[in-house]
Design a binder for these strands. Structure first.
Lengths: 227, 227
DNA sequence: GTCTATATCATGATAGAC
DNA sequence: GTCTATCATGATATAGAC
């Protein structure tokens, strides 16, 4: 009888996943080695292959551990909003908050590694390696469709291709915020206590993103100074 | 007499820089090896160390080749605008265009490797390795200060810490756009001919970013549906 | 399930012939 | 300036004892 089928996650697996999260974030997927990883996890070098099969499978496990739950939470929040609205259109800002809230709340989780994961996630969005892009794409697919549909309903007058671009920009804003909140010196000017406060960050991000999403159409208001 | 002092950039150096740009973008700095790199450049394995001294020095050279010029161009464009305005305040959107224009125009340069570099650059913004962050930070420092001052002058009523956050968000939007324009599936819905048209992209980005920059202050307009 | 030991190959860097 | 050859180290992965 297979014990692993019952106790799906062992102590060793958790330690490996925690170390992998941290080291993939710091050094990238190719840059973080099995030796670094098993040393930091305090497990044997062979343990990764035993528990996960290969380095690539470990990468997938790292994302799967948190990302599936995160996107499920996003969709649940959106559906809660839609139910409460009872047929009325949602405000774009409310939809935005439903999308960004789950990831921002994770920033506050330093003990459980959530913050590390969000930084890894932000980095992974700009990862060109095909297998990783496909992996992330798959894991986001359902939530993306749901949210896109919600935005279409909330903004029926916005041309579809314009919406797609603006979703792209919004995604980028979030990705960079997740990845760089810890690192970038620009933010040095910001009050430290605000930096990781999910509520404050959500307010700031939601204000910025919804204004961008609702911007006047380019072409109709292109005022260039000295053009 | 040192010939390299006269002809600063040799054919071999250019080939190495081109290959490095491409492979650092694809595999990250740690993931791209000297062997890959010299093979793709069609030069000897020892050539990198001879011409650049080390892998780290090569990384710096890759950025320096284009980034210094890019930021000089940005500042020149800003100063041109300020001169034309003759003391009057610039519009935030004009300042934004001055900042993003130089990088977006580079996307169109497929032959010379500009597009590759912009993608590398977008990736590098989320790179946590300290030496690289410091390098990029240094190279941006002057331009950042100049542009921040311009925004302060254009938006005297916007609180400083709010401005800093919004600049951070704008930077993120641009970074992600540079890094992911080629890759992300979301954009699959966009017309392909628009995807790399710097003018179209600049219009879309400028509209999004300036709306975000001018958004009503968070806290004053936080309308939550079903809160 | 966990360990040691090892196979096989890639890594960055350099010494020294040409 | 360019090459080959080589060093010391580190890479992923696995076989087999416990």
């Amino acid at each position: 009888m297979n014990l692993r089928a019952i106790k799906a996650v062992t102590e060793t697996q958790t330690r490996i996943l925690d170390a992998a999260e941290d080291l993939f974030m710091q050094h990238g997927f190719e840059g973080a080695s099995m030796r670094m990883l098993t040393a930091q996890a305090g497990v044997n070098l062979a343990a990764v292959n035993y528990h996960f099969g290969s380095k690539d499978a470990l990468i997938e496990a790292v994302f799967r551990r948190r990302l599936d739950a995160m996107n499920t939470e996003r969709i649940a929040e959106l559906e809660r909003l839609e139910k409460d609205a009872a047929g009325k259109a949602l405000s774009p800002e409310a939809i935005i908050r439903a999308f960004i809230g789950a990831s921002l709340r994770m920033i506050e989780d330093t003990r459980g590694g959530g913050r590390t994961f969000t930084r890894l996630l932000g980095r992974a969005y700009t990862e060109p390696a095909k297998p990783i892009r496909q992996l992330i794409g798959q894991m986001y697919a359902t939530a993306m469709e749901r949210f896109k549909a919600a935005f279409v309903r909330a903004l029926p007058e916005l041309p579809k291709d314009e919406l797609v671009w603006r979703l792209h920009f919004m995604f980028g804003t979030l990705a960079y915020t997740l990845a760089a909140t810890d690192t970038v010196q620009l933010i040095a000017g910001a009050k430290p206590e605000d930096r990781y406060d999910a509520r404050v960050l959500e307010d700031r991000l939601a204000a910025f993103m919804s204004a961008g999403l609702l911007a006047p159409l380019a072409g109709t208001v292109n005022v260039r100074i000295a053009a």
